[in-house]
Measured scan of single mutants.
Amino acid sequence: MQRVNMIMAESPGLITICLLGYLLSAECTVFLDHENANKILNRPKRYNSGKLEEFVQGNLERECMEEKCSFEEAREVFENTERTTEFWKQYVDGDQCESNPCLNGGSCKDDINSYECWCPFGFEGKNCELDVTCNIKNGRCEQFCKNSADNKVVCSCTEGYRLAENQKSCEPAVPFPCGRVSVSQTSKLTRAETVFPDVDYVNSTEAETILDNITQSTQSFNDFTRVVGGEDAKPGQFPWQVVLNGKVDAFCGGSIVNEKWIVTAAHCVETGVKITVVAGEHNIEETEHTEQKRNVIRIIPHHNYNAAINKYNHDIALLELDEPLVLNSYVTPICIADKEYTNIFLKFGSGYVSGWGRVFHKGRSALVLQYLRVPLVDRATCLRSTKFTIYNNMFCAGFHEGGRDSCQGDSGGPHVTEVEGTSFLTGIISWGEECAMKGKYGIYTKVSRYVNWIKEKTKLT
């Protein structure tokens, strides 16, 4: 034993070699072989497995989906700052455009905790909710729209109204504003409101030439003092309507412009014939205590009207009353817009006519005020429907199939267009061939041609 100890002390290297040989010859039971080890760690190889990531292109799944990435790591994937920024906006807080917040056709661009709407022409605001041009839906104005110097929408209202708090709607500024039905039992019968379409306001006024200088022999019209197929109006439903009495009662109609003036057809009036105007009328054979009678003290036909040349060209006249009318729910003026808007309103496509005229061709006159909704007829169809001249200051309205029309005794009465609950004068009943005849239409004086003249002559002093 002493000898062994001496050998170990003198030859430590020998001992180490012996131990190493023993270990190498022993069977290893701690580690699995290569094949079995792979069965336990069965993990798919990654895209760049075996390579240094710093030297390969980034992978979106590896960089940002398996674990949260930084902007720089995302930049490695896209290799483009702009594309990385677009991805980053949604990656950080989701897609803010998912709810489609942009209105009126706006395009949404996502941002971090926010979004941006790219608005089409005519709109602005956070969600493109603000109209900035009158060309689109009248700028959301209830009545009139004008573009300011910086191309912003400025709404306005006709006389007797003021802008509401929203700067879009119009509200009454006087007790009985024009064009409004205020009798409670008839307010439910107000005709369907007309909503502004998209309009090209630059070209809204037709490029028409008034044929002022045409000389033409007097034409022989049949029954051209021209509501057939209409309905009984309720008291106060058309408070701007008046009836004219002269040699015979209810020979023509008219509309209240203001307390002192009536507008009617020029062919209705004769110099030297006494005319009485009755406002607030409903049943011409009954006294309903809503009527107001006034005498006409002055007749002003349009300066281009000449019955000797043509009885229905420039067929418009103004009547001055001896005493002002007292405005109330049964006696209310009709609204008159400017030339541009009167023309736009007419193009809405349908209007209402009213009167006490004959209820059928050569038949009896109506006792109760009649009204009828009539569609506008395109000019080409209008011209083809008659052998008589249709001037540019006239328009056609009615039904091709016949059966409904204005008729004798309705002449001078109103053709009105309702705009968001307020009625505007767009025409004056003038003439036609018979009444409600198939293929024939009622012919009306186009008020847009005469609004400046009306307003100039009827100013209240």
Rank of each mutant, 00 (worst) to 15 (best):
K109G: 03
V181G: 11
V4P: 08
S255F: 01
I334T: 02
T445V: 10
G351A: 10
E420K: 05
C407Y: 05
S423Y: 15
G413K: 05
G105V: 00
C141R: 00
E76L: 08
V174K: 09
P239L: 01
V77I: 10
P197N: 05
A265G: 04
G253Y: 05
K68P: 08
F348A: 14
F360H: 14
N59G: 07
T389I: 12
Y115I: 02
P324F: 03
P375K: 14
C396N: 02
T276C: 04
R75Y: 08
T417H: 02
F87H: 15
L163D: 01
R379L: 12
T342Q: 03
E124C: 02
S99K: 12
I262K: 00
G58H: 14
Q219D: 07
E159T: 09
T458Y: 02
L346P: 02
G106M: 00
W431V: 14
F388M: 10
S354T: 14
A265R: 02
D315H: 01
E340I: 14
T417R: 01
P197Y: 12
V447L: 09
E73I: 07
F345Y: 13
L325A: 00
G94K: 11
N304H: 08
P197F: 10
S406C: 08
F360S: 14
E76S: 10
N100A: 05
L52C: 06
N283D: 14
N304G: 08
A436F: 06
D338M: 04
V243R: 10
L369Q: 07
C102H: 00
V92Q: 15
C407A: 04
S385G: 12
Q408N: 13
S25F: 14
L319Y: 02
G427F: 01
F121T: 04
I262H: 01
A397G: 07
K457H: 15
Y441M: 11
L19N: 02
F221C: 07
T29P: 02
V257S: 00
N104S: 03
E98I: 09
G421F: 03
A192D: 15
D198Y: 07
D249I: 06
Q219C: 05
L369N: 09
V451W: 02
L130S: 12
V374S: 03
E82G: 13
G246M: 05
G403F: 09
I334P: 01
K387S: 07
S217Q: 13
V416R: 02
H267F: 02
N393I: 02
N283F: 10
Y201D: 10
K188Y: 14
G442C: 14
A279S: 03
S11H: 13
A265F: 02
V181N: 05
K188R: 07
I136Y: 15
N138C: 02
I112G: 15
L244P: 00
N306I: 05
W240V: 01
A173Y: 10
E35P: 12
N213S: 13
T225C: 05
V199D: 14
Y115F: 09
E54H: 10
G105T: 02
H400I: 12
R373V: 06
N151Y: 10
K260E: 03
I210Q: 11
H314Q: 03
G253W: 09
N104H: 10
V242D: 00
G58M: 09
E285D: 13
E323S: 11
I309A: 12
E323M: 11
E420S: 14
T81L: 06
V4Q: 09
C117Y: 01
G409L: 07
V243S: 12
D93E: 07
E142W: 04
I443G: 02
F395Q: 01
P239D: 00
E456P: 02
V248C: 05
K387M: 08
K293P: 05
Y444L: 05
V242I: 05
G58I: 08
L346Q: 09
C28F: 02
F71K: 08
G125T: 00
N295R: 14
G439P: 07
R191I: 14
E231I: 10
K446N: 10
T290Q: 10
H314V: 03
V202T: 14
E340Y: 14
N343T: 09
C117T: 00
E270Q: 14
R162E: 10
S430M: 10
K39I: 08
E208A: 10
K68Q: 15
I454H: 01
L372R: 13
E53W: 06
N147H: 11
T389F: 10
V77M: 12
P44D: 14
A207R: 05
I256H: 00
A307Q: 11
G363K: 14
L372T: 13
G403Q: 13
Y330S: 03
E171I: 12
N138I: 04
S25W: 14
L52W: 11
G421D: 05
S255W: 01
L369G: 07
R298Q: 07
T386V: 07
F123K: 05
F144N: 00
N328H: 02
G253M: 15
F395H: 01
D131R: 06
N343Q: 09
N258K: 02
S255T: 15
S99W: 05
R46Q: 13
F123Q: 03
E73C: 03
I443D: 01
T386L: 07
R298P: 00
Y352S: 11
W453F: 04
G351P: 02
G439R: 10
A37P: 15
L346S: 03
S169R: 11
E86V: 15
H314C: 03
L32D: 14
F78L: 14
C134N: 03
T332Q: 03
V368L: 10
C119P: 01
S49W: 08
D378M: 04
T209R: 08
C119F: 00
E10I: 15
F176S: 05
G122N: 05
L163V: 08
G179R: 01
I428F: 05
P301Q: 11
I428Y: 05
Q57N: 13
T342W: 01
C252H: 02
D212M: 08
A149T: 07
A192R: 05
R180G: 03
F55I: 09
K311T: 06
